[in-house]
Amino acid sequence: MMRTTGLGLLLAVCGFGLAGVGWAAPVSVPLGLEGLSRQRVEWRDHGAARVCEGVLLGDLLARAGAPVGEAVRGEALSLVVVAEAADGYRVVFSLGEIDAKLGAGGMLVADRCDGAALGADEGPLRLVAPGEARGARSVRQLTALTLRAVED
């Protein structure tokens, strides 16, 4: 029996073949915030200053088995996260954008903003992308996160 460790195990968990030849299938990322370190981010939402609380998107991805840190290189840079809202609105982030060592990082799956739980018009979860000039990729009423490879 062959035992896989290190980067090979991480890639296998994420659906990569051990030879790095591709992505097996999209991975649904659980949206449960329990057990992860809570963070706060300040950002501007349509010109208004806001402070939101939740967990880092990168931490949710890591818990789901996504490559993180030094493993975000090579084929892992062709992975994207699709965030979907209750109304079907979808946005995409590359894994490189989300990783704090490569991109802006700091993207948050929030359950509270400005000291209160999110209301029905934007919650119960919201994906916040604090470093962006416009809030178009800050998804209200977040219902799903999917990690997938960019296909040819």
Rank of each mutant, 00 (worst) to 15 (best):
L33V: 10
V68G: 01
L56F: 05
G35E: 02
V29D: 06
D59L: 05
D152W: 09
A19R: 00
L127A: 06
R38C: 11
D59T: 01
A48C: 01
E70M: 00
R90N: 14
G6V: 00
P26D: 14
G47Q: 09
A64W: 02
V128K: 09
G6M: 00
L142G: 02
V91R: 15
G103M: 12
L147F: 09
H46T: 07
A24M: 09
T146W: 12
P124N: 07
L147W: 11
R73H: 10
C52R: 04
V13S: 01
V27G: 04
A19L: 05
R73M: 03
T143V: 15
C52D: 11
G54S: 12
T146H: 12
S138N: 09
A144Y: 08
S37C: 02
L118V: 05
R137E: 10
V82H: 14
R44A: 03
L77G: 04
A85H: 08
G22C: 03
A129K: 08
G17I: 04
C113V: 05
V139R: 09
G135C: 09
L77H: 02
P124V: 10
A83W: 14
L31Q: 03
G135M: 07
T4L: 11
L60H: 00
V139L: 13
L61C: 02
F16S: 09
L10Q: 09
A129C: 15
G54Q: 13
R112Q: 15
V109G: 11
E151K: 11
T4G: 00
E84L: 11
M2E: 06
E151L: 12
M107Y: 12
D87I: 12
G106P: 05
D121W: 04
T4C: 03
D87C: 15
L95A: 11
L61H: 03
P130D: 12
E151A: 15
S94R: 12
T4H: 08
A12W: 06
G17T: 07
R44K: 08
A120K: 05
A149E: 11
A149V: 05
V21L: 13
G47A: 07
V80P: 05
A133S: 14
V80T: 13
G96E: 11
R73D: 09
A71L: 04
A64P: 02
A100N: 03
E75Y: 03
V91Y: 11
L60C: 01
L60W: 00
V41W: 04
I98H: 06
A120D: 07
V150W: 12
A86Y: 07
E34D: 14
M2P: 01
G54I: 12
S94C: 08
D45K: 13
L79C: 06
P124G: 13
Q39E: 14
L31N: 04
M2V: 06
D45T: 02
P30C: 06
W23E: 11
G15E: 05
T143E: 14
M1S: 05
M107L: 15
L9K: 06
G131W: 13
A24E: 14
S94F: 05
P130N: 13
G74I: 00
G22W: 05
R63I: 01
R140M: 12
M2I: 03
V92G: 10
L57Q: 04
G69Y: 00
A129L: 08
E75L: 02
A149G: 15
R134L: 09
G32T: 08
D87T: 15
A66G: 01
G105S: 09
L7E: 01
L145M: 10
A100Q: 08
G88R: 12
V82N: 12
L57A: 04
G35Q: 00
